[in-house]
Design a protein around this nucleic acid. Structure first.
Length: 476
RNA sequence: GACCCCUUCGUCUAGUGGACCAGGACUCCAGAUUUUCAUUCUGGCAACAGGGGUUCAAUUCCCCUAGGGGUCGCCA
């Protein structure tokens, strides 16, 4: 058994978005590849930002994408609980330890005072930082303030004149001077820890071997390695992933649109396409291959081949990839995942033969499942014709074509696809009407458009009964 | 503003000190197939941020500049 353990640690503040999906995906792939464990931990230490239902959404979205966690909410692996809000006692114990050993101190400064400090620093063009007012309070002073009922936070005492050096698996050596680092708050006045303390304590206790997270955490990593140091713990391997960017190159955010996994699924993207596309945002094997399922990713993935630069999310290629999967995945599977979209648009898909035929042909015409269901509408609803359409339909040639088909259909009720194709092919000669004059009216009367699938195929889907009805309707 | 990270076609990316007048994919354009459309196939357009070094040789190594991003919260 490998001792590789990785975690995805989102905070329940909203829906799982593409950035989170990719982090979770890399976590999962890496764990599977190494024979390790993938843990889901919920970082709910901010009571103000907690969103009802967010945990469910996170779990559901991961599940929808086929990313299963080995340990997490509802799946105890002996390292729980997996909600940070249920681990408060643990954090308090470690805060106490830091306080006793002088690595942290209680700070009584109010938010207003700190805001003033920051303004002053910015005015002086200095790096805004806590000024250390409470750093050297005597035990008596501290006690007096506590006795006076003053609320306090606990801050980490960052040493002066130190160079923090760490190695990131993607970026290599990173150095940051301690003078730039703030005395980070570890425990808030409400008794909840901040991310910095909670994540370090949990990662240690949960025996996380690789911390895989977004690049936005790079700057605060020195605080984390310092915590590992003062606790006397071995730090994990750091892996800071490049960011996924909006088209304007800023960090992917809600402001620029809906980037939630749920949103993309709702638009009719296939999980295969989404996972494939998102994996390629920042990672690529040395080969020219671009189509990967999870198994193949597990086989090929390597952090060595993860880029350093951020990747712009542009769904043009995702659209192509989705249509590729739509055309190449098993037909029955596409039919199955399309069902909810069809039910929404056409309501009744109880005729399974018809439904399957539509999927079979329609998947060449759509990029998403929403488009596919939309495309199928002419097979389910009465057609509406424009003025231009009617001109074609009322044309003398068109009417002759319609009469011809009606006659032929009156001969028998059951036609095979081959017979239909034969009919479509031979009729022009019999009627002496060819090309546009023949095909346009036919497609129009059966499908509502002058272009589209073969006329035989369309009739097969419609059925002779319905086809006759549509013909009769346009007869003058 | 300070610090950290980054910089190959429009986008995702491959690439090595000489085999690169830089490869693939998406998009776009043209052609073929399809009586149409979609699919498919073929071809085309399009990039090493700039400037200095190092070197016989630099897209590849070093430095500087520029540009972009991230962080600087009792948010994660």
């Amino acid at each position: 058994m490998s001792n590789i353990r990785v975690r995805f640690a989102p905070s329940p503040t909203g829906m799982l978005h593409l950035g989170g999906l990719r982090t979770a995906l890399y976590d999962y792939i890496f764990a599977k590849q190494q024979g390790g464990k993938f843990i889901l931990r919920i970082e709910d230490t901010d009571r103000n930002r907690y969103v009802e239902g967010a945990v469910e959404n996170l779990v559901n979205s991961l599940q929808m994408m086929g990313i299963d966690f080995d340990e997490g909410p509802g799946k105890d692996g002996g390292f729980g609980p997996y909600f940070q809000s249920e681990r408060l006692d643990i954090y308090h114990k470690y805060i106490e330890e830091l306080l006793e050993n002088g690595f942290a101190y209680k700070c009584f400064c109010t938010k207003e005072e700190i805001e003033k400090m920051r303004e002053k620093a910015i005015a002086k063009k200095e790096n805004p930082k806590y000024d250390g007012t409470c750093r050297n309070l005597t035990p008596e002073e501290v006690q007096a303030k506590i006795d006076a009922g003053m609320p306090y936070v606990v801050r980490l005492k960052i040493p002066e004149n130190r160079m923090f050096t760490f190695y990131d698996k993607i970026r290599g050596k990173v150095e940051i001077d301690s003078s730039l680092i703030d005395d980070q708050i570890l425990l808030k006045t409400d008794g909840y820890p901040t991310y910095h303390l909670a994540a370090v304590v949990d990662d240690h206790l949960m025996e996380i071997s690789h911390v895989i997270r977004g690049e936005e955490w790079l700057s605060s990593t020195p605080k984390h390695i310092y915590l590992y140091e003062v606790f006397g713990w071995k730090a994990p391997t750091w892996v800071h992933l490049p960011l996924i960017l909006n088209t304007d190159k800023s960090k992917l955010s809600k402001r620029h649109g809906d980037f939630s996994v749920e949103g993309f699924m709702g638009k009719g993207y296939l999980k295969e396409a989404l996972v494939n596309f998102i994996a390629l945002l920042g990672w690529h094997p040395s080969s020219d291959e671009e189509i990967f399922n999870l198994g193949k990713m597990i086989e090929k993935f390597s952090f060595k081949r993860v880029n350093k630069a951020g990747a712009i999310f542009d769904n043009t290629k995702l659209d192509w990839m989705n249509s590729w999967y739509l055309r190449n995945l098993d037909m029955e599977y596409i039919a199955e995942v399309s069902e909810p979209f069809f039910i929404k648009v056409v309501k009744d898909i109880s005729d399974k033969d018809k439904y399957r035929n539509i999927i079979k042909i329609g998947r060449d015409y759509a990029q998403t499942l929403v488009e596919l269901a939309e495309w199928a509408k002419p097979f389910y609803f009465d057609l509406e014709f424009t003025k231009e359409d009617k001109e074609i339909l009322n044309n003398e040639n068109s009417q002759a074509v319609f009469k011809h088909y009606l006659e032929r259909f009156s001969e028998k009720d059951v036609w095979t696809l081959d017979e239909l194709k034969d009919l479509v092919k031979k009729s022009p000669k019999e009627l002496n009407i060819k090309g546009k004059n023949y095909y346009f009216p036919l497609r129009l009367v059966f499908f509502g458009k002058t272009s589209g699938p073969g006329v035989g195929e369309i009739i097969e889907i419609l059925g002779i009964e319905e086809s006759k009805k549509r013909l009769q309707k346009v007869l003058i």
